[in-house]
Amino acid sequence: MSPTTIKVYRDLMEKNAAWADMTRRLAAKKHVAILNLIGSPGCGKTTLLEGMVRELGPHFRFAVLEGDVETTRDAERLDALRIPVCQLITSGACHLSAQLVHTAFRDLPLDDLDVVIVENVGNLVCPAGFDIGEAAKVAVLSLTEGEDKPVKYPQLFHEAGAVVMTKIDLLPHIPADLDTCIAAVRQVNGAVPVFPVCALDGRGLPPWIAWIERLATQTRGKDR
C-alpha cells in the first residue's frame, strides 16, 4: 500500500495525567492539600521544611514525600524531626512521576494530615512539566542562584502558585538584589505571592506558613 496518514491527536501526558487525577481525587476525599516543591539542588528545600517544623506550632499537620535521585539522607533529616516522611528514589530520573507519587501518597496516614508536601527532585526544568496531582506548585529559589533564574526557567515560575526565596540572610554578602529577583518573577507570573525567607533563623516563615494554612483551610472546606 502507498503511505497512509492516520490522524491521532493523543495527549502524550495522558498516562501521567491519569495517575495525577487519581491522587487529586484521593486528596479531595481525604481533605488533604498537596504542594509540589520544586527548586535546584541545594536551594534549601529540605532546610525550608526543617525550618517550618520549628515554626509551625498547631497550624496544620503535614507529611513529606521526599524525591531524590539517590540516597535516603533528606528523609532521615526530616524523620529526625518526627515528620511522617517517605523517600522516593528515582534512580536517575530527573523528576517525580505521578505514578511514583501516588503509590507513596496513598500509603500515608491521610486521615491524620492536612498537607502533604512533595519535595521534587532538585531541578528547575523537568519537574515543572509533570503534574503529580498537586494543589499548587511552589518554586523555591535561593538568592545565591542569581536573580535572573525566573526568566531563564519560565515554565516553573509561570505555573507556580507561590514562590519561596531562600537564604535572604546572605544578601549582605552576595551581589544579588531581592527586588530585582522579585521583578524577574513578575515578568513571567504577575500575580504569584513571593515569600522571602531565611529557613535557618525563621525570618519570613510566618507569612509562608499562613499561606499554606489558608490553602489547607480551603481544602478542608471543600466537600464538607
Binding site: P3, T4, T5, I6, V8, R10, L12, G190, A191
Partner: peptide, 19 residues
C-alpha cells in the same frame, strides 16, 4: 503582568504516516 496563557503547554501526537 496579569496575563492568562491559552496555548503553549501542548504535547500531543497529531498524526502518523504509515506503510
Amino acid at each position: 503582568t496579569n496575563l492568562e496563557a491559552h496555548t503553549g503547554r501542548e504535547l500531543f501526537l497529531e498524526s502518523l504516516e504509515i506503510e
